[in-house]
Design a protein around this nucleic acid. Structure first.
Lengths: 334, 334
DNA sequence: ATTTATAATGGAAGCGATTTCATATGGCGT
DNA sequence: ACGCCATATGAAATCGCTTCCATTATAAAT
């Protein structure tokens, strides 16, 4: 693979000049510019990104930490960020932590090793301390779905509590009184926040929480299925269930229908996240919309402004509100 | 951020020694090794990946070209490759082409600029010539879902014909005789291959193809819906339909149910791809599983063997077989 | 005509690692 | 006690760029 040296020789100019026409960092007479361009084309020259980053101390790439490469949530996260960055000729480096502390740390170390100009982290297991330390290390960091006081202004999260509160209240307003809850894993802060929103909504309407109506799932279908099965088989009566997320809801619906019951006629369901599938399944799922794509895009815009100094009159706020999406999985009762 | 020089000074050794303990490329006396390790820890040293790649001419990263960051297909592709590479301490660089020739080319150029040790390309719009050229340029390339004669041994694709054949034969064995087909756009090679598999299955069982039972869709729901509507309204009788892909099947099911008919009681349906959603819809779709995750993993293993010379007794074949997933959209008839 | 400012280009020093080659050290056999 | 070899370490070149500074050519000003 040809180097800048070969190009410069081929064009009969210095390396500096080649660099200049590549980057447009200084004026080059049209004639020499053309010579260089031709030389580059003839040799099939492709600048070595590593050498560039090393020399310029800029990688023009942004590191993205996610948990998994598949799944609609992370898909939207990646797509949202990439769309914005692509338009500004920035590249993203994606690394997955798989919800494992060690891997997540390795992933961040990798991104730092690549000297990313900024990081967008959806960190599940990393401690606040670790994150704060990285942020103070010099690299610009944005945290998705997390709110650490010491990092105010670098966090971008959804109001989980409010979303869950809204979902629960929605059911209450539809006349439901016995409302079950299938939580996400409680070591996850968002799972806790959502659970708390449910509790607050009950509280506000003077409904006391029944422990028999709460189960912990795993944020996946399997957990929703098992939790709902337990709930149904326990004999406790309830007319609705709030799910920690949509996937949990899918599992719950399966369990319910397997027992010959109907959603929403016998039991109403609301989810959280508004995954793409949720509008396709039957019944279409009533859920809380989680605008992750927009959040990711917002993170990207912020970085463009703060790190790359692109002019931008946009103002940002850290906490984005969730919204209800009414579909067909909830029935009013009287 | 500290450099290897600072580490070496802090530890009172040479840079070479630091490099050696980092990479384990040569024996270092335990005592000095510890000194270096401590220095690294104390300074919070993180090797600069760009400098490493530049100096060693190895990036330990593999470029991945996909069309989109979201969507179950590409999610599985990324995840499958990453899982394997991660276990071997290799990193992936993902770039999306968005089904656009210019962007796709840019994406590849980017990956080449990053001096990836190998490329895994799911190229939709790039020409055979371009791909062949890149492959001859020195970088190891693997093509997913594509079969170019000149690049034999570097292609990894599914046996569309066999998959479709299997699906059709499955219906025949369930007693169906009048089997319709909703094809994908025939300019796509995979759509043609799938259609051919259908024809071969009919042929094998001495069923002649009825032109009135074949429609061309667009591989999306809308096309499936329209094609099925035409079929149903045409008056030709059939008891089952083979769809070019799952999305087509979704559309077809809608059209069928809209006419008050039931799947599978009145009409059986089989799809192709086995999207995650297919196990969630009702009825759960019987379909042909497209093992994209495994294909991606296979590509990764191949690269580990060919590029990184990891010992591997695995033998590879280019064409992977599809398999039937029996669910609830097909009924036996007598 | 001479000076001065300006624009275009080149030379060479980094950037932070790896790697080759040379050197110092110590143990061993004789 | 001598030389020899193996082993651990260091010095310095190198990878392919960017960028600062110097240099030359050109135009404008006096």
């Amino acid at each position: 693979m040809p180097t800048i040296k070969e190009v410069s020789e081929h064009a009969g100019v210095s390396q500096a000049t080649v660099s200049r026409v590549m980057n447009g960092t200084a004026k080059v007479v049209e004639e020499t510019r053309v010579k260089v361009l031709n030389a580059m084309k003839e040799l099939g020259y492709r600048p070595n990104a590593h050498a560039q980053s090393l020399a310029s101390n800029r990688s023009n790439s942004i590191g993205l930490l996610i948990s998994e490469f598949d799944g609609p949530f992370y898909g939207a996260l990646m797509a949202g960020a990439e769309e914005i960055f692509r338009k500004h000729k920035k590249r993203i480096l994606i690394s997955a932590g798989h919800g494992d502390e060690k891997l997540e740390k390795e992933a961040v170390e990798f991104l730092l090793g690549c000297r990313c100009d900024a990081l967008v982290l959806h960190a599940e297991t990393l401690s606040d301390e670790y994150l704060i330390e990285q942020a103070n290390q010099g690299t610009h960091v944005i945290l998705i779905n997390r709110n650490i006081a010491e990092m105010e202004g670098q966090c971008l999260y959804i109001d989980n509590e409010q979303g869950s509160f809204m979902a629960t209240e929605y059911l209450i307003e539809k006349g439901h009184k016995n409302i079950a809850y299938i939580a996400g894993p409680q070591w996850k802060h968002d799972a806790r926040e959502r659970f708390w929103g449910y509790q607050k909504a009950l509280g506000k309407h003077n409904i006391s929480l029944q422990l028999g109506l709460v189960e912990e799932g795993n944020f996946r279908e399997s957990g929703g299925y098992q939790a709902a099965s337990k709930l149904l088989d326990s004999g406790h009566k309830f007319t609705a269930v709030v799910c920690g997320n949509d996937q949990t809801a899918y599992g719950a619906i399966s369990a319910i229908e397997e027992r010959g019951l109907k959603v929403p006629d016998d039991i109403s369901i609301v989810g959280f996240d508004d995954l793409p599938y949720s509008s396709l399944i039957k019944p279409k799922l009533t859920t809380v919309h989680f605008p992750i794509r927009q959040i990711a895009a917002e993170a990207a815009r912020r970085i463009l402004q703060d790190v790359y100094k692109e002019k931008n009159t946009h103002t940002f706020n850290s906490c984005v509100q969730a919204s209800m999406v009414e579909r067909n999985s909830v029935k009013s009762i009287t």
